[in-house]
Design a protein around this nucleic acid. Structure first.
Length: 231
DNA sequence: ACCGGATTGATGGAGCACCA
DNA sequence: TGGTGCTCCATCAATCCGGT
């Protein structure tokens, strides 16, 4: 078994060739301490004896429904979960994300995209489970589905809003480029339009102002993208 | 089934910043 | 200073969802 070091990634994929010849070596080449297993049973055995921060999970496993497995993992911990699926449908993406996945990728998966997703997730997982947005008092709940304003008002987030804020907090304090945000949002809404990103941000600001009577510290960085201003 | 409110998507205009 | 691109926001239509 691998050492319990930062960056441990458990790959759960029943396709041995994909797992052992592509994903594991690919992620190792990207600096991850990657480890592969082929079933849900092996996954459970592994997490009992080893602390993994990130899991790459094939949604179609021989011994358990992948969506249910995601739900079980999410209930157990705030581990970072990347789902791999052959099915590129909005319904499957939404279900995977609602069950608790952080990222939903479709096969054939580009190892570089997978590695970038894991790097992003590792930053989030590296933070406290409930992310305090510095001294402003803004807080994104561990599940990512509610934003809590300084006054304690909790604001329910839609799926795109959740993805947007998770991505921005993961990149803090650096701004997140529009292309990265669009790419992230495209994982749930294929071909997410740039105008919709602006609309999403505008409406999120309005929603926060209306419900929390506070200004969301989401700042546009001209020519770059967006960031969360914390001071 | 129907209705009304809330949410989301599409479009386009206004204002601002940047640069030649 | 004018052109260009970026950002914000208003408006309308479509869709969703809960209540009756």
């Amino acid at each position: 078994m691998v050492e319990g070091v930062k960056g441990n990634v458990l790959i759960v994929e029943d396709d041995a060739q994909l797992r052992d010849e592509v994903l594991v070596p690919g992620l190792k080449a990207c600096g991850f301490n990657a480890w592969g297993v082929g079933s849900a049973t092996e996954l459970y055995r592994s997490i009992v004896v080893e602390r993994f921060r990130l899991v790459v999970l094939d949604i179609t496993l021989p011994d358990e429904d992948g969506f249910e497995l995601v739900g079980h993992l999410r209930a157990l911990s705030d581990i970072g979960i990347v789902v791999l699926s052959e099915i590129d449908s909005t319904a499957h993406r939404v279900r995977g994300l609602i069950e608790g996945a952080d990222v939903y990728l479709t096969k054939p998966v580009d190892v570089d995209v997978l590695a970038a997703s894991l790097h992003s997730l590792s930053r989030r997982v590296g933070n406290a489970a409930a992310m305090e947005l510095a001294s402003t008092g803004w807080r994104l709940e561990a599940s990512g589905w509610r934003l809590v304003a300084p006054g304690g008002v909790a604001i329910a987030l839609s799926l795109p809003e959740r993805l947007l804020l998770n991505r921005l907090t993961a990149s803090m304090p650096e701004p997140t480029t529009r292309s990265v945000l669009l790419e992230e949002l495209s994982t749930v809404v294929p071909g997410f339009d740039p105008a919709r990103l602006e609309m999403l941000i505008h409406r999120l600001r309005q929603k926060v102002a209306r419900k929390a009577k506070a200004t969301l510290p989401l700042i546009a960085v001209r020519g770059v993208g967006y960031t969360l201003a914390l001071d």
